[in-house]
């Protein structure tokens, strides 16, 4: 996965949820990375999934179809050491 200035973060209720989502997204060939949940996102388990903004639509659709279970979806943008966190779901 490329290092981007804007990316998505999916958060979960538990480590098991995060691991299940990881394998579902991988099966769909969506490029993701399992990372420690960024410190500025609280109220979530320690693992999060980082995904590319270009997959935003499909991830939202999978969430609506209930094929993918996550707690929140954030869009993170970084510029000159400043971070902006936008909650999408």
């Amino acid at each position: 996965m490329e290092r981007e200035n804007i990316f998505l973060i999916l958060t979960f209720d538990s480590t098991h949820h995060a691991m299940r989502a990881e394998s579902i997204l991988k099966e769909e060939n969506i490029a993701i990375k399992t990372i420690p949940t960024p410190r500025d996102i609280t109220l979530s388990c320690g693992l999060a999934i980082k995904a590319s903004v270009s997959d935003k639509e499909i991830i939202i659709k999978m969430h609506e179809d209930k094929t993918l279970d996550f707690k929140n979806l954030y869009e993170v943008s970084t510029m000159d050491n400043k971070r902006e966190l936008k909650k999408i779901i």
Partner: peptide, 12 residues
Amino acid sequence: LGKILMKSFIYT
């Protein structure tokens, strides 16, 4: 779990 923690560690 160990595998996933390792990925997370190296990312950090």
